[in-house]
């Protein structure tokens, strides 16, 4: 119910702006109608491409980030080795990264996936590491006295302990990665939803806004997905 109210507010503001700048900014209902009209022929393909990039990058970075983060959290030696690497790569401006990756990768798909990977993996590593470190030592003591094996240790202790923080970080990272995905899709040989939006800036205003509309829709759905996971897995919070 509250979510619907949120949408209503967005649309009211949008209508208001469109009313003032009706030459440049189309009305919401026009965009939505246009969305359903052009989706099968024009939007489906770039959407699938962008979405598969985004998801591949996100999944890879979560898998890798959890492992590295846990090792760092559990062993101070591993932490000391990896810490400088993480902290020195993390602050590099993302747009500079795009340039570097374009040079390195022949495949555009892997260039963009790697970009998303790099953007998401570091926050994930840092979050997981910190979350592991805040587990009270008594929890480890008890786990040890139960003689849990490695698999049980991960499944019953470490994974549930980091999950809430991991999901918050993902929520933040999704926003950034969509923004950067757009950036990368407009560089070099463009493709995907970002390119679609960019190439319609001059040609077709309505289609451009429809593309933007979809991009934010994708972001919204990903957020909702994370909310659902949180409700299901983090009842204890």
């Amino acid at each position: 119910m509250k979510k619907i109210l949120g949408f209503i507010i967005i649309f009211i503001i949008w209508y208001f702006i469109s009313f003032i700048y009706h030459q440049q900014i189309p009305y919401p209902h026009d965009v939505i109608i246009n969305f359903f009209n052009i989706f099968p022929e024009q939007l489906l393909e770039p959407t699938l491409e962008s979405l598969s990039l985004l998801l591949t990058g996100l999944i890879l970075s979560v898998l890798v980030g959890i492992h590295i983060g846990m090792y760092m959290g559990l062993s101070s030696r591993v932490n000391q080795i990896i810490d400088p690497i993480v902290y020195s790569i993390y602050p590099i401006p993302k747009s500079a990264l795009v340039q570097v990756l374009i040079v390195i990768f022949a495949s555009m798909f892997w260039m963009k996936t790697t970009l998303i990977f790099i953007i998401v993996v570091f926050p994930v590593i840092i979050t997981v590491k910190d979350a592991v470190k805040t587990i009270p030592k008594e929890v480890f003591y008890h786990a040890k006295s139960l003689s849990l094996n490695k698999k049980e240790m991960y499944k019953e202790i470490l994974f549930p302990a980091i999950l809430p923080n991991l999901l918050s970080t993902l929520r933040i990272s999704i926003g950034t990665s969509i923004a950067v995905l757009y950036l990368s899709e407009t560089r070099g040989i463009g493709s995907g939803l970002g390119y679609y939006i960019d190439s319609h800036v001059v040609v077709n205003n309505l289609n451009m806004f429809t593309g933007i509309f979809e991009l934010s829709l994708i972001g919204y759905l990903l957020f909702i997905g994370i909310d659902i996971l949180e409700k299901r897995w983090c009842k204890w919070i």
Binding site: P136, E138, V139, Y141, H142, S145, L146, S147, L148, N149, E152, E156, I157, P160, A161, L163, C234, W236
Partner: peptide, 29 residues
Amino acid sequence: RRQTGMIFQNGGLFPWKTVYGNCSLGLKA
């Protein structure tokens, strides 16, 4: 030793598990 139980100062319970879950983990293992 499986039959030695320690009750810690601050509990050391697993907050991500229910009361039942806290009790069952050792048995499940």
